[in-house]
């Protein structure tokens, strides 16, 4: 499929490090819409929608916020905390969108495995279906995310 100028610009911005160190695409050679399509298909295979996922992510972030950076008990198996920095993360899509530099980390007590996301991740998944490219700092694997948060 031929790319529109808008898609080319978006792809260029996502691969650059203008907004986050290392960019949003990591070393993923696929196009942004190939990544989105593959992750949406994976979500669908797991019987979830992006809306369900981001609602749960936001719910967990909201539980962690009062902890002011300390671990908060999510349930018997999981703890959650947030780390915040001053400033904003900017959505790379062409619309106004700035998000607090807030990172939510969920830790599974039994395995010690943890998974993290930023407020911008919640927006990118919810609004654009974008889990970021493989190898980027904040790439989230849909399967791992679902296993950790539901």
């Amino acid at each position: 499929m031929k790319e529109s100028p808008q898609t080319k610009n978006l792809e260029k911005l996502l691969r650059s490090s203008k907004l986050v160190a290392g960019g949003f695409m990591g070393d993923d050679a696929r196009s942004v819409y190939e990544i989105i399509d593959a992750d949406m298909a994976e979500l669908s295979r797991l019987d979830f929608t992006a809306k369900q996922v981001v609602e749960r992510m936001q719910q967990i972030t909201d539980i962690a916020i009062p902890g002011l950076g300390t671990w908060v008990k999510l349930d018997e198996q999981r703890q959650v905390k947030i780390d915040e920095a001053k400033g904003w993360l900017i959505c790379p899509w062409p619309h106004p969108g700035k998000f607090a530099k807030r990172i939510t980390t969920v830790r599974l007590a039994k395995s010690g495995v943890s998974i993290r996301w930023s407020d911008l991740n919640i927006h990118l998944i919810g609004e654009h279906g974008f889990f970021e490219g493989k190898g980027s700092n904040f790439r989230i694997e849909p399967g791992k995310l679902i296993a950790a948060i539901f």
Binding site: K18, L19, G87, W88, I90, C91, P96, G97, K98
Partner: peptide, 10 residues
């Protein structure tokens, strides 16, 4: 400016 002039931080 926080967004490098993209009109995204205001």
């Amino acid at each position: 400016s926080a967004c490098g002039g993209r009109g995204a931080c205001g």
